[in-house]
Every structure is written in structure tokens, then in C-alpha cells.
């Protein structure tokens, strides 16, 4: 049976290649039919902010990669609610359907997966 992987994404979308390269790991895993989950934590929650205009900083739109996740079988998407609130974001108005998770449930989420990579 395949080992499950939780990818924890902590990078904001426009702070360098980190956010995109983390998503590439998820998409590659999905392409191999591996059970992959994503958790957006810390500044990673900014990847979910609606209304971004990456062309303003000459970057490719990450939203397309994010929206491709379910197409690659990566449907378990989580976001740390506390990090959204700290940053003035609402779980109800994000660019992607994600499941908010309370801090108290984060340790259990990690321990439900065989592997974890924090990028």
C-alpha cells in the first residue's frame, strides 16, 4: 500500500520559487497516484487569497497549479485557521476549497500521514 504524504506549505506565493516548487512536489506525487494531502500554514495561507494579480510582478499564476491539484488526485487540502485569522483572511473567502483545521488538531493531522515534508 502506498505511503501517504502530507505537504506543509509555509511560503507566501510571491516570495520566490518556494510556493511553486512545493506545489510541483504535490502534482508529481498525484501524477503517480500517491495519496497526498496539503496543509497551508503560516504565510502559505496567502496562496489562497482571492484576487491576486501575479502578472503585476511578472510571475506565473499559481492559482492554475492549485486548481490542478484535484485533477491530479490531490483533494485533501487543509488550512490552519489560526494563520488565516492572524492575517485577516476569512476561511469563507478563499480561492480554493480547503478544510480549515484548528491548532489542536494539527499534530493529529501530521500523525495520520506516513510521510511529511514542510516546504
Amino acid at each position: 500500500m502506498a505511503k501517504s504524504l502530507l505537504l506543509i506549505c509555509r511560503r507566501s506565493p510571491w516570495s520566490g520559487p518556494g510556493a511553486r516548487e512545493a506545489l510541483d512536489v504535490a502534482l508529481a506525487g498525484g501524477a503517480f497516484d500517491l495519496p497526498i494531502s496539503l496543509l497551508f500554514l503560516d504565510d502559505g495561507v496567502f496562496q489562497l487569497q482571492p484576487g491576486q494579480q501575479p502578472a503585476a510582478v511578472q510571475q506565473k499564476d499559481l492559482t492554475a497549479n492549485l486548481q490542478a491539484l484535484p485533477l491530479f488526485g490531490v483533494e485533501a487540502l487543509y488550512v490552519a485557521r489560526a494563520d488565516l485569522e492572524r492575517r485577516g483572511l476569512s476561511a469563507e473567502h478563499l480561492s480554493l476549497p480547503v478544510t480549515p483545521v484548528e491548532d489542536a488538531a494539527l499534530a493529529a493531522l501530521l500523525n495520520q500521514h506516513d510521510l511529511v515534508i514542510t516546504l
Binding site: K3, L5, D24, V25, A28, G29, A31, F32, L34, L115
Partner: peptide, 8 residues
């Protein structure tokens, strides 16, 4: 990246 997944 498939090589990373395979190794993991």
C-alpha cells in the same frame, strides 16, 4: 520529482 517520491 518522481524520483523523490519513489525513494520516499
Amino acid at each position: 520529482l518522481g524520483q523523490l517520491h519513489e525513494a520516499a
